[in-house]
Design a protein around this nucleic acid. Structure first.
Ligand SMILES: [Zn+2]
Ligand SMILES: [Zn+2]
Ligand SMILES: [Zn+2]
Ligand SMILES: [Zn+2]
Lengths: 137, 137
DNA sequence: GGCACAGATGAGAATGATTGTCGAAATCAG
DNA sequence: CTGATTTCGACAATCATTCTCATCTGTGCC
């Protein structure tokens, strides 16, 4: 391995993105961008996309693909382990869930079928109490 | 009840789509369209999109959203129960898997957090033996 | 501090998947 | 067959995301 990832520079924009990611909600890149702008930042949309992707690669943020096909992001607990979510389709609020024994199950199944380089997705979505009360069903 | 779903008409195009869906692979709407065209059909792209979506609503085909955000489709066994897949990221080939007790687990978690209208996604992806041999890793 | 430069930014164009529009063609009840 | 309704298909329009490229800015070095 010749190219160790060349640590991203800490620019004003990157810092702003990190600071904006304070809520526990999953939001789209465009939504985070809007928020940053509404708080006075002049950051560009492309920069938000690049920043969030880079942070996701580093494991600093979680990224999930919604049914609509758009990618949603939220800050991840520092150095947290691999995990899954129960996410609200209305507001993006999510809680982390533990799926005991699933990791092992996945590998067993993969081996049975001789599939390699396994990845898995487990996402639960629903409507949170607040959104339900607001009539989003 | 005024508007009961007005059963879709069986047109030549709809029949062609069903016939094309003979392999066990997950492919994009565009890929299925290409195949239909290459086999002489004059069906339009929008029609393929509409048809696949309609069939997915009826449960005739499975639809999954890939990491890229594009939606992949494949015929589902007739009247089959809700299920999940182990899919090859190289060629789309998939096998259906059984995830015992997960359905119950999902509902228990949802109730603990008072989330309603629960849906869940479990997808395993990997590289199948053929694709691995072809060097797609 | 001051310099050099690779990496980062931002405005806007480009892309690519999907959806909308609308006149023409097909389906189906009577 | 006839007319009401639905579906087609070509193509324009959307929308999220990526690319281009001229400009700016951390960072390592003196
Ligand atoms: Zn909510
Ligand atoms: Zn996991
Ligand atoms: Zn299936
Ligand atoms: Zn394969």
């Amino acid at each position: 391995m010749s190219a160790a990832t060349p640590a991203p520079r800490m620019t004003r924009q990157r810092r702003e993105i990190l600071e904006a990611l304070d809520t526990r909600d999953f939001r789209s890149a465009q939504a985070w961008h809007e928020r940053l702008r509404s708080e006075g930042s002049t950051i560009g949309l492309a920069t938000v996309y690049r920043g969030l992707q880079s942070l996701a690669d580093q494991g600093e943020v979680d990224a999930v693909v919604a049914e609509s096909g758009e990618t949603l992001y939220r800050r991840c607990e520092a150095g947290e382990e691999h995990h899954h979510h129960l996410r609200c389709r209305g507001c993006g609020k999510a809680v982390e869930i533990d799926v005991p024994e699933f990791e092992a199950f996945a590998h067993r199944i993969a081996e049975q079928h001789s599939y390699g380089d396994i990845q898995h997705t487990i996402e639960l979505t629903g409507i949170c109490p607040e959104c339900a009360a607001a009539g989003k069903d």
